[in-house]
């Protein structure tokens, strides 16, 4: 005797449930599986970041220091780049088109010929970033950017601030 009871086949009094093919999704193990995938990935990423950190910090270059620029002068050629250095006191000479001066980084000094007017804060001993290219040993710049340090010191306390003055 054989009768069908909603999905179950009853054979000889014993109900035999049809086995559904196992579902591929197993909810309880999902969280653990996620962690298992996540861990090696995290380790790989952390390791790679650590290795890269040093390489990249020097690779993303906003400017070269005057020292680096002079050392790389042959490879830089006449390409345009930014160069950092401190304005050497006593070298600033105003010209018709702009200003000539020298910048120094450690012991390397580069003569800069600027076309265009320098910014307000431009003065001896201030760190600047100049934009331009080498021509021979001199650096032709068409923009000076003053790089202010993170230190803020009050101007000479005895001096009264003069109206609109910036120095």
């Amino acid at each position: 005797m054989k009768e069908m009871v909603a999905g179950a086949e009853v054979v000889g009094g014993h109900a035999q449930w049809k086995e559904l093919p196992p579902t591929r999704r197993r909810p309880p193990s999902r969280m653990r599986r996620r962690i298992v995938t996540l861990l090696p990935v995290a380790i790989v990423v952390v390791a790679l970041v650590a290795v890269l950190y040093k390489g990249l910090s020097s690779a993303l270059v906003y400017f070269y220091t005057a020292q680096q620029a002079v050392a790389m002068r042959s490879t830089l050629g006449s390409s345009t780049f930014r160069m950092e250095g401190v304005v050497v006191p006593g070298t600033i000479v105003s010209t018709v088109n702009g200003v000539n001066f020298s910048i120094r980084f450690n012991h390397t000094v580069v003569q800069v010929i600027e076309v265009g007017s320098p910014p307000q804060l431009f003065q001896p001993k201030i760190p600047v970033v100049v934009v331009g290219h080498f021509a021979g040993k001199r650096f032709f710049s068409d923009q000076i950017m003053v790089k202010h340090s993170a230190n803020y010191v009050a101007a000479h306390p005895g001096r009264i601030s003069h109206a609109g003055g910036t120095s």
Binding site: L48, G55, A59
Partner: peptide, 9 residues
């Protein structure tokens, strides 16, 4: 090349 490494990351 550090940039290639970064791309992999």
């Amino acid at each position: 090349d550090p940039w290639l490494g970064l791309l992999v990351v």
